[in-house]
Computed example of a mutant assay.
Amino acid sequence: MKEIEAKLNGDIDRLTNKTFKFDERIGEGWFSAVYFLKTREIAEKKLPNNYITMQFFQKNDAVLCGTDEAIALIHTFAESPETLEIYSLKDGDKIKPFESVLTISGAYQQFGFLEGIIDGILARRTSVATNVYNVVKAARTSGEQKPVIFMGDRDDHYTQQAGDGYAAFIGGSTAQATHAMNEWWGKKGMGTMPHALIQMFRGDIVAASRAYHEMYPEDDLVALVDFNNDVITDALKVAREFQHDLKGVRLDTSRTLVDKYFLRNHHLMGTFDPRGVNPELVFALRKALDEEDFQHVKIMVSGGFTESRIRQFEERNVPVDMYGVGGSLLKINIGFTGDNVLLNGTPSAKEGRRLRPNPRLEKVVYHGN
């Protein structure tokens, strides 16, 4: 963990390959496209003295992530990695379309079979980091930075959590749902209560909150108040019961439901979409809490939030204090390409591609296995 903290402070060039957990079968080519494996065999037998430069880029304005992982991969599985010449940008760097983010020079048979894996690492990590960055940016449209909790555990395979958590951190989310998402930072996951807890107390939000508070008195008490689809009624119940011990309430109303508040106030209907967590419901909740002197109670929202939806909330100054975001942050919308652009020191790229020197690239130091 000290290495990671040092890296973030700019004290060392790179994380080492000891930081990452890799499947040993990578070295056997198990995860490489077969044509890369065949090309490696041909290079070994027919062109043993080749020396190529492979260059990686993508086509968006983005927040780069995955370079340390890609470099650790190379240092772990390439043949004689200490002889390779690697230049790279750093995780967290802002990048432009077609900007070179990583170059590797050496014999193709040393590392070429890792091309697709490197593309995949950079694509996923950069996509998540960029998605999170854009959501965090949207959450400060109104001028104040609202915290964004990364809640992507239920939206993808569990094996992705650690890497996605790292990418989310690079993108600007410092609060994450699981321990795995936080493992690189030496922190633990954060969370309040699920609907399952309230269900076991037969929908009694006060009883569920009391049990939580008694079991975890060191935690901030944040009550989930949409179980009965009556967020204002239940929020006031827990606020009256716990007073200043209640730090916040969370709304996670399904997009298929209309909260009972609107069913009691028909005159409000007809001018907006009343389903799910909507601005009018949050305004009404804030007003109800304030009228009973619960101004200290924060409001957290979750359930289908995206960059555009958060931006809409912020532009309307909806009184949200924290956003919980999941699935929209995991969309892979940035793809990387690795091209061989030099052969034995001379330009030799496919038509339409060329070496794109980037003065921002830094030479990578080999740390050993």
Results as ranks from 00 to 15, higher is better:
15 L>K: 02
314 E>D: 00
150 F>V: 05
329 L>C: 13
28 E>S: 14
300 M>V: 10
49 N>Q: 12
294 F>D: 00
260 K>A: 15
116 G>D: 15
217 P>G: 04
273 D>F: 00
358 N>I: 13
238 V>P: 03
224 L>T: 11
114 L>R: 05
308 S>V: 07
215 M>L: 06
255 R>M: 10
333 N>I: 04
168 A>R: 10
9 N>E: 06
6 A>F: 12
12 I>Y: 11
92 G>A: 01
229 N>W: 02
208 A>Y: 04
317 N>S: 14
278 N>Y: 00
349 A>T: 07
285 L>S: 11
173 S>M: 03
34 V>P: 12
159 T>G: 15
259 D>Q: 02
228 N>K: 11
82 E>S: 15
144 E>C: 02
341 V>R: 06
57 F>G: 01
29 G>E: 06
52 I>R: 07
326 G>D: 09
100 S>I: 06
109 Q>H: 12
245 D>R: 14
163 G>L: 09
105 S>I: 06
7 K>N: 06
136 V>W: 01
27 G>K: 03
326 G>Q: 10
106 G>V: 04
254 S>Y: 13
176 Q>L: 15
7 K>D: 05
210 R>F: 00
270 G>H: 06
341 V>T: 10
261 Y>D: 00
18 K>I: 03
29 G>V: 00
141 T>D: 01
70 A>S: 15
143 G>P: 08
337 T>C: 09
257 L>C: 06
14 R>M: 14
339 D>V: 15
173 S>W: 03
245 D>L: 07
140 R>I: 00
132 V>T: 15
147 P>H: 02
101 V>P: 03
323 Y>N: 06
192 T>N: 11
75 H>T: 03
284 A>K: 01
177 A>R: 13
18 K>C: 05
13 D>S: 12
14 R>V: 08
306 T>G: 04
263 L>D: 10
306 T>I: 06
219 D>F: 15
103 T>W: 03
309 R>W: 05
281 L>A: 02
116 G>A: 15
74 I>Q: 05
45 K>G: 07
42 I>S: 05
347 P>C: 14
93 D>E: 14
131 N>K: 07
66 G>W: 02
315 E>C: 09
172 G>P: 08
317 N>W: 05
186 G>F: 12
204 D>R: 11
280 E>Q: 10
153 D>Y: 13
263 L>P: 00
204 D>C: 07
107 A>R: 14
314 E>S: 00
141 T>A: 01
344 N>W: 02
